[in-house]
Simulated assay, not measured.
Amino acid sequence: MTPTLFQALQAARRAKRPVLLATRLSDGAQALVGPDGAHGANLPEAVVAAARQALAEDVARTVEVEGARWFLHPHNPPLRLIVVGAVHIAQALAPMAPPLGFAVTVIDPRRAFATGERFPGVALDHRWPDEAMAALGPDGRSAVVTLTHDPKLDDPALDAALRSDAFYIGALGSRRTHAARLARLAALGHAPETLARIHGPIGLAIGAETAPEIALAIMAEIVAVRRRATLVSPAREAA
């Protein structure tokens, strides 16, 4: 890898920009490809298309184009799960995410709930959600889940998430609760098509009842959205 290419790759990783390193196996020629195409290189269009797909799927692969084999290696920013509310469902959800590649942060200013004893090994943020979300800066590799049922905590987090590139936004609550929530967020200036980004009631329809089951339904929906799988109706209408 040339010093210029290495510096460009490192700069993209520091800035948390998705980028893919394409290497022609016959001679080691390399180029970087982002979601909007190749930069500083004249790659065959089929290589760029395959690279963008590999980047979106976050899967390395080898492709053959015009008789040449290319190795496509995505360098995506880390996956993050930002949970608002240190509640029982969050306790079940937090350990499920790391094996799936997600770094977890739980936001809750209520220090009696957000403790290391209840969330061992999990990053805890005791700031109010608007401050915490501004500092965390959700991006296209972030999922945001609100679980408190308290508009003072959930609404600022959802407001921030809707103004971000978060790939998944979910909120716990019944259909009635969600309708009231949407009305409040609309009053903050969010259009209907923006509000449609919120998954609420949250989770896949697996008949979840217990906190671990609801957490499983939420995590399954996050993975399905990330992988662009076909989704079914929400899992639970929590009170």
Rank of each mutant, 00 (worst) to 15 (best):
G140P: 00
A183S: 15
G121W: 10
A157V: 06
R118F: 11
T210W: 09
P129C: 04
T146D: 02
G173N: 06
D139P: 00
A183P: 01
R141L: 03
P120E: 03
R127P: 00
E131V: 11
A183M: 14
R111W: 01
A217E: 04
I202E: 03
A161H: 08
A157C: 10
R181F: 06
A134M: 05
D155M: 11
P156G: 11
I107F: 05
G101A: 12
R175P: 07
I107V: 14
A196Y: 10
D165S: 14
G173D: 06
L124F: 07
H178G: 03
P192K: 14
W128N: 00
L162K: 05
L147E: 03
A217L: 02
L172S: 04
G203D: 02
R184N: 14
L100K: 09
P156D: 10
K152I: 06
A208I: 04
L100A: 15
A123L: 11
I214P: 02
G140R: 15
A180N: 13
E213C: 13
L216K: 08
F113H: 13
R118K: 13
I107T: 04
R176D: 09
I198V: 14
L195Y: 12
L216Q: 05
L216E: 04
H126W: 13
D159C: 08
A160I: 00
D108L: 12
D150Q: 13
L195I: 12
F102N: 01
D154V: 07
P192V: 12
M133L: 02
A196N: 07
G207L: 11
P201S: 08
G203W: 01
P156A: 14
P212A: 10
R163L: 15
V106M: 03
V106P: 00
A180Y: 08
V145M: 07
I198A: 04
R127S: 11
E131I: 06
R111Q: 15
L153M: 12
G207H: 14
K152T: 09
D155C: 11
L158Q: 02
R111V: 13
I198T: 03
